[in-house]
């Protein structure tokens, strides 16, 4: 099956759900690592939307990434509670260590970094995630893949 058909099939499971197009796109991103144009076409067709509308949705939500991520994906909280305990310094150290800025993937594809605005762990910052692992009171060492 081509990518559009695969995305169409995923979308088909959410046609009657509230917020269905967004849930379908979240699932596409989770399944294939990122959302490409063919996926948008498949989702658009399933929901009877235009590709432009689906592209608009994808562009709006930060979870709906259109580029592949690194083999390890690291998110570092940039919000105030984490700022108050060193998130800026942690981010600078991570950028230097992994060779990627926020929103970027290292040249060798090993790590991608992303800014996140609050993980709800505000008593115990800086907070971060390394793939599905949650890190609190994070240090540069603790973020290693």
């Amino acid at each position: 099956m081509d990518q559009a058909a695969l995305a169409h099939e995923i979308a088909g499971r959410h046609l009657d759900r509230i917020g269905g197009p967004i849930t379908a796109l979240r699932e596409v991103a989770a399944e294939f690592g990122y959302i490409e144009r063919a996926h948008m076409e498949g989702v658009a067709d399933a929901f009877n939307l235009t590709v432009a509308e689906v592209r608009g949705i994808v562009g709006f939500y930060s979870d709906l990434n259109t580029e592949p991520r690194g083999r390890t994906h690291i998110r570092i909280c940039q919000a105030e509670a984490c700022q108050s305990v060193g998130a800026r310094e942690l981010t600078a150290a991570a950028v230097a260590r992994f060779g990627a800025g926020l929103g970027e993937t290292a040249a060798d594809g090993s790590v991608s970094l992303e800014a996140v605005y609050c993980l709800g762990l505000c008593t115990s910052g800086p907070a971060a995630t390394v793939d599905d692992r949650i890190i609190v009171r994070a240090t540069p060492e603790a973020l290693a893949p």
């Binding site: 759900r17 509230i18 917020g19 967004i22 849930t23 979240r26 709006f60 939500y61 930060s62 979870d63």
Partner: peptide, 10 residues
């Protein structure tokens, strides 16, 4: 009751 999970937008 239905649960909807967002996609990252303050």
């Amino acid at each position: 009751i239905e649960l909807f999970v967002g996609a990252g937008a303050y």
